[in-house]
């Protein structure tokens, strides 16, 4: 088990190098790609790909951290109440949030935050909450009852039991939820470009508007590689 931790993950390294090559090397091979796809290189977006990637990472990281914070706290509080009704209510609420179309979340939050990053962050946050919250609640629920009984019986307070025993045991489940949320957010963040946010959606949207496959490819490949990298890095 210890050995596995230190072994270099080939797939992970591959995705990482591919992403770096694509992001930083795009300028040097865009000419070749353009001739292959038959599109003009003059139309490539004004912001450079490394900057767009960095903006994308910032959007996803900010929204996801806020979602992790809220979901973990909410999940733990709900668990501490030991109230099954509260648990199912929170889960239902989360599922309802998930069904709102992302375009609607963004449109609805424009009056609140204006154009730019605000509405996108809001949408990403909303979509990241459910997977993390659900996995936190389910992870805490599915702990072997005799472990909980033993923890209480030897004199742990409910909070001690939660932090020392239950949260560590629910961790793989919670991490899986975080992974799902991040992968969703990485692809979802691209639609932010429609309301003036930065990120890798900018070349994609521009490419769609100008019928330029190279622009679409420029953003999409980076997004795909980033999602694969995250998926791989957080796999259990």
């Amino acid at each position: 088990m210890i050995r596995r931790k230190f072994r270099i993950d080939l797939m992970l390294t591959f995705y990482f190098i591919a992403l770096l090559l694509w992001v930083f090397g795009f300028e040097s091979f865009k000419g070749t790609l353009a001739s292959l796809l038959g599109s003009g290189i003059g139309l490539v977006s004004r912001t450079s790909l490394p900057v767009l990637t960095w903006q994308h990472i910032q959007l996803v990281a900010l929204a996801s951290s806020a979602a992790i914070l809220v979901s973990l706290l909410l999940g733990m509080i709900v668990h501490l109440t030991r109230n099954e009704e509260a648990e199912s209510l929170v889960m239902k609420l989360g599922s309802i949030l998930e069904t709102i179309p992302s375009a609607a979340v963004i449109a609805l939050s424009i009056p609140l935050f204006g154009y730019g990053n605000g509405p996108v962050l809001m949408a990403l946050w909303v979509y990241a909450i459910l997977p993390i919250l659900r996995n936190t609640i389910v992870g805490l629920q599915s702990i072997n009852p005799s472990i909980q009984d033993a923890a209480t019986g030897i004199g742990m307070s409910p909070l001690q039991r939660l932090l020392k025993i239950e949260m560590p045991l629910a961790r793989p489940m919670i991490l899986a939820g975080i992974k799902t949320a991040l992968v969703i957010n990485i692809s979802l963040a691209t639609i932010g470009a429609t309301v003036g946010a930065g990120g890798l959606g900018v070349p994609i949207i521009a490419g769609i508007r100008s019928y330029d496959p190279l622009l679409v490819l420029q953003g999409s490949i980076a997004v795909i590689l980033m999602a694969l990298l995250t998926e791989r890095a957080l796999r259990s």
Binding site: I147, Q148, A150, A151, G153, I154, M156, I165, L169
Partner: peptide, 21 residues
């Protein structure tokens, strides 16, 4: 308080309930 009482009393159950981590 229940926690104080329980720490003074040893407790051992059928499925052991050892903490796996």
């Amino acid at each position: 308080p229940p926690e104080t009482l329980r720490r003074k009393i040893g407790y051992c159950i059928q499925n052991v309930g050892l903490f796996p981590h």
